[in-house]
């Protein structure tokens, strides 16, 4: 025990300069996958060797919305659903800054759905990391647009009957240039996807399927976070380039992961610049 402490003093956590360690432990529950997404993001930054001073993270509200508070760059925790327009303002105000939006499914796809669609349409140079845990966890487990049928939640006490959203399909339809999906277990692949997305100019989306051990899996009796991870291990299938309309996630069925879209479109700033030149 004592030996460990002295070593801690000798060497700090490798993500120390990327994360606000003074705020640890974070608020996420045991077995939650948001920490994994942050871990992958931090690792990706490490790999890219970005100038962290020129990086900015914007989050909305929700469990994933708290990510901004733990990443040691200029970070903004904004209102519910409005992370993307806030980030748009930052990007257009200062195009030198790399802006990353990390938020949850409810925040980005439900209340912020319109901003998601329109930022993708404009192809604003943002990287969006959407942590999808199939539920509104911060408010206590309500049905989300991504909740599969017929999963139980507190506001669908008799089983969800609404058709769930398919985030990659929405992103593609709206015009995102890079769309990938991984689970919280595919840590290395997720990291490389985030690296790719960060490198790509334009609106790139990485969806991270993450366990919610507190609400989603408890109310549906799916065990704890580890059981969810084991489920991902057994049921995720890597299919790169799969057409996005095949990517719907059924309740406790296979999850197709991989990189689905990687295309070129002029970004908003490029089109704007070109327009002015004409």
């Amino acid at each position: 025990m004592e030996a460990i402490i002295t070593q801690q003093e000798a060497k700090r956590h490798p993500m120390d300069n990327l994360l606000r360690m003074d705020r640890m432990p974070h608020i996420w529950c045991p077995g939650c996958g948001i920490g994994n997404a942050v871990s992958a993001f931090a690792d990706a930054l490490d790999k890219l060797e970005y100038n962290l001073d020129k990086l900015c993270v914007v989050s909305g509200i929700g469990c994933t919305g708290r990510v901004a508070g733990y990443i040691k760059v200029d970070s903004f925790h904004t209102t519910h659903g409005r992370a993307i327009p806030f980030a748009t303002g930052i990007k257009l105000g200062n195009p030198d800054i790399k802006v990353v939006v990390i938020s949850g499914d409810g925040d980005l796809v439900s209340i912020g759905g319109n901003h998601f669609v329109h930022a993708a349409r404009r192809n604003i140079d943002l990287t969006v990391i959407c942590v999808n845990n199939f539920i509104y966890a911060m408010t206590g487990g309500q049905v989300a647009p991504t909740t599969p049928t017929p999963a139980y939640t507190t506001t669908s006490p008799f089983g969800n009957f609404e058709n769930p959203s398919n985030v990659p399909q929405l992103a593609e339809a709206a015009g995102a240039v890079y769309v990938a999906r991984w689970t919280a277990l595919h840590m290395r692949r997720l990291t490389y996807s985030i690296v790719d997305a960060l490198k790509k100019p334009g609106f790139s989306v990485v969806e991270v399927i993450s366990p919610c051990a507190m609400y989603y899996s408890r109310i549906n009796k799916l065990g704890d976070g580890l059981d969810m991870m084991k489920f991902y291990y057994d049921h995720s299938i890597i299919k790169h380039g799969e057409p996005t309309d095949h990517l719907e996630i059924d309740y406790q069925k296979e999850i197709i992961v991989g990189k689905f879209v990687d295309r070129e479109r002029p970004t908003y700033s490029e089109s704007m610049g070109k327009w002015f030149e004409d």
Partner: peptide, 19 residues
């Protein structure tokens, strides 16, 4: 004044994609 450099939304495609 500048016209639109925004790319327009493909509404039929969005409609189909969302169901």
């Amino acid at each position: 004044p500048y016209g639109s450099f925004d790319e327009p939304l493909n509404i039929p495609h969005l409609a189909r994609s969302c169901g």
